[in-house]
Write a protein that binds this DNA or RNA. Structure first.
Lengths: 341, 341
DNA sequence: AGCCGTCATGTAATCCATTACATGAATGGC
DNA sequence: GCCATTCATGTAATGGATTACATGACGGCT
């Protein structure tokens, strides 16, 4: 580790005091242009980099944003992450990623601890459970934004898409195609997005006067895994009266459903229509291309960081509840319902 | 932001000096058990968390590891990342992710700057170009580990798989299946892995006395994109004498190749064998399941962090060059070559 | 001329944990 | 019984940047 140049070195080289150097480099004015010139030249030549620990200690900030993410392998989260990182870099913040694996392991003590330990200036959660009401305590003390998932009915800033409407549109589209027995593969987690997508599904059925049928509701594992999507589909498709269409709350689940259908000799979309949710990259990497709901992950990430920044700098009138537009994208896994003769 | 408890508060509450508190909490001995007891009790009750900026300033460390990653959407990188994060957390380090997008934008000045700006204790690069020799300068000054990609012929610690052998095995397998015209879709980047996979491809041809044919070598874009895999495949398959098998240097490229083949009316594996590289999740999400080379991404991540830690604490005899085992996995995209009559 | 205000710059306090050094007590060897 | 050593603990210096306050110069006003 090479010896670090400190502000004192710059001051000596420029023939001024440390205060002046600091003022120049932090652009606080009250310094003669020619003095500024000297200081900048000295700082450049010595390749001076301020010691962040010292600065943060003094200013009582860290310029670090903590991101609570459940896993990186899901392309949904990696896109959000990219959005956050891009904006935070522009704003001069570093992003520290804390892998939560299972969001059930989070609690108030742990999150408080993370905040204090890392002296983070703010936090973005990517996967909070909808009943984690303790988060309100945290949000009262530290800047926080919930991205994608958020705690229901609590006034904590969050950003997401309108999952309920999106799901309803998606299922209504299936109904318009003539489907009446429509199954849902949802996830056995406590995310609000899952709950709202389920609500949207029920909304659509109700609007079309289709009675709710518990047997058409299947639960995949909490992590949206491909394998659990297959398993859930097997249950639905083994029903005496199987569905002609299945709405899935995530793309990976939908892929699992398609795989299971194939194994059972069903052709998608001819024998079964399937829709996904999120529109991750690989929905168009192989046929049939997936009909799904596109969610602007990258933008969700960007906007969360902007919202968080507004909170950190206490911008007056900062938004606390943002919904970005979604879009149902009809591709190749859905088709008109054709009753077999 | 609530007022922070500082060491002085703990000292007062425990009726000792700050030095004693520090000694107890840092387990440096020379403190009576009963005094330790008092201090720990006070610290617990006040929920004392040391101020990291202050500690780091004093100890001249940061407990932060910088990770240079090109993009998160590639599942290869997200798995490596997960491995790094898991180990670093256990060792008490935070991981700071710097998105490099394009590894060509990296240079000595930028990397030095990143080190100094973030006061990182060490760095792991995920995608350095094989000719970025300036990295040697950096490695002389700061702890550094190159994961997956590394600079060729420079003595900088690195960890990866033996790409050349893996590629050779993979192509030899195709040859054993009777293929003689074997194309390669590689990437137009400057990564050593691409170069070595190409070398392995050539090794296998040479061993089987198959002449090298430049027209069978196609370059996809630098980022391994699905679309560029399709484009490269179109070139190869439009040849007067097209290949009967294509070796791809990444799974996504292979998916692109399969898509392009399908569009041109070719059935994989009957009309064309395809192999990938990495074995990312979605190789078995739809049929045909991809024949590929499995690379232990997660373990590569884990071991990089361990190697880096050894360097940081200056463990004597720390390894500087590690290769983890790979495995050719034959699935459904490859088949015996059957010359059409 | 005398006073005040503004501006450029400097001096020194501050942020908080760590740790070198200092102190005083206790123990052990002779 | 005395000196040396070890041990428990305290006091104060330290790390580097920021910034409140101090200083001195200069210009303008009455």
């Amino acid at each position: 580790m090479p010896r670090m140049v400190k502000i004192e070195d710059v001051a000596r080289a420029a023939g001024v005091s440390v205060a002046t150097v600091s003022r120049v480099l932090n652009e606080q004015g009250h310094v003669l242009p020619e003095t500024q010139e000297k200081v900048r030249k000295a700082a450049d030549e010595l390749r001076y980099q301020p010691n962040l620990s010292a600065r943060n200690l003094r200013k009582n900030e860290s310029r670090i944003i903590l991101i609570l993410a459940p896993n990186f392998s899901n392309p949904y989260y990696s896109n959000v992450l990219a959005g956050i990182c891009d904006v935070s870099r522009n704003l001069g913040y570093s992003t520290l990623i804390y892998n939560t694996y299972d969001s059930n392991a989070l609690d108030q003590t742990l999150v408080t601890h993370l905040f204090q330990k890392n002296r983070a200036d703010g936090m973005i959660t990517l996967a909070i459970n909808r009943d984690d009401r303790w988060l309100t305590q945290i949000a009262g003390k530290y800047p926080l934004v919930q991205c994608s998932e958020y705690v229901e009915d609590e006034p904590i800033p969050h950003i997401s898409v309108d999952n309920r409407s999106a799901a309803k549109e998606s299922v209504s589209m299936l109904i318009a195609q003539g489907h009446r027995r429509i199954g849902i593969v949802t996830s056995a987690n406590r995310y609000l997005s899952s709950a709202n997508r389920m609500r949207g599904y029920l909304d659509a059925l109700e609007e079309a006067d289709i009675a709710r049928d518990e047997s058409l509701i299947a639960y995949a594992s909490a992590d949206y895994s491909f394998a659990s999507g297959k398993q859930a589909a097997r249950e639905l498709l083994s029903l005496p009266e199987p569905p002609s269409a299945i709405f899935c709350v995530s793309d990976i689940l939908a892929l699992g459903v398609i795989a299971a259908a194939g194994k059972m000799g069903l052709q998608v979309p001819w024998d079964l229509s399937v829709t996904g949710f999120d529109d991750v990259d690989y929905t168009t990497m192989f046929h049939p291309y997936l009909t799904t709901v596109s969610v602007p992950c990258y933008d969700l990430g960007r906007r969360s960081m902007q919202l968080l920044y507004d909170q950190i700098v206490q911008k007056p009138g900062a938004e606390r509840e943002v919904y970005l537009p979604h879009k149902v994208i009809v591709r190749e896994t859905t088709a008109q319902y054709a009753k077999q003769q």
